[in-house]
């Protein structure tokens, strides 16, 4: 008989908890994902660190879907960049540290525009004329850097480095790498990176980074 009571209590608890999630009004902020980084102050191997950086749950990589396009902004720590540079080589700990040190002084981000549906080249998507394709390449190479900026308080900072990764194949995405000078903004304080999309006329796309979010990263134990 005792078992029946336990089963009854368990089923009742499950039903009540399921019902709670269906209520109108228990949403928005209460359901918002925590922006806290996971595993802060923990240590991990380089491979795990690379996974950690790419894991969307850790909020270093942020996505925004606006109808047909996904706009992804990914923070790239210097160790991650060193890993990308050396991954096909046999390297020592010193070599890794030296490579990583080349990326000091700037905060690097990867901005990728990705076509959500359909195949084909992103820059050929919804072209209104043949010339528009060339204009888009020119825009991404030279003018787009004026449309990406970092906002902290009342200050606005343009990227100190901007590079359009031109790929000569059909790909439903396009990527730019950009970096902001660490001396010109406070990494410990909240900031927002804004991209004013003129390629597909989506307007301001914003990504917010919390206090210390770029600093509170796990330590790398082995390289």
């Amino acid at each position: 008989m005792n078992k029946s009571y336990y089963i009854l209590f368990f089923v009742f608890a499950v039903i009540v908890s399921c019902n709670e999630t269906d209520k109108v009004g228990d949403t928005s902020l209460s359901n918002s994902k925590s922006t806290e980084l996971h595993n802060i102050n923990s240590s991990m191997s380089l491979d795990r660190f690379v996974e950690f950086v790419a894991n969307k749950e850790n909020q270093l990589t942020k996505n925004k879907e606006i109808s047909d396009i996904n706009f992804q902004l990914a923070f790239m720590p210097k160790e991650y960049l060193a890993y990308l540079e050396l991954k096909n080589e046999n390297y020592s700990k010193e070599q890794f540290a030296k490579t990583a040190s080349h990326y000091e002084g700037m905060s690097y981000f990867n901005l990728r525009l990705h076509l959500l549906k359909g195949q084909g080249e992103l820059l050929k998507y919804n072209l209104s004329s043949g010339q528009q394709y060339e204009a888009r390449i020119k825009y991404m190479s030279f003018e787009m850097q004026k449309d990406v900026f970092l906002v902290q308080g009342n200050d606005t900072l343009l990227p100190g480095m901007f590079h359009f990764e031109r790929i000569f194949e059909v790909a439903p995405y396009a990527t730019v790498m950009l970096a902001f000078d660490n001396a010109k903004f406070n990494q410990e304080e909240e900031f927002t990176i804004v991209y004013n999309d003129k390629l597909f006329n989506k307007g301001f796309i914003k990504y917010n980074y919390k206090n210390n979010q770029l600093i509170d990263l796990p330590n790398i134990t082995g390289v």
Partner: peptide
């Protein structure tokens, strides 16, 4: 059934990149 306030809060957070 009016969720205008909740929606307003959500879309503003989403726009600011907070969500």
């Amino acid at each position: 059934m009016n969720i205008s306030d909740l929606i307003t809060n959500y879309i503003n957070n989403k726009y600011k990149g907070l969500e």
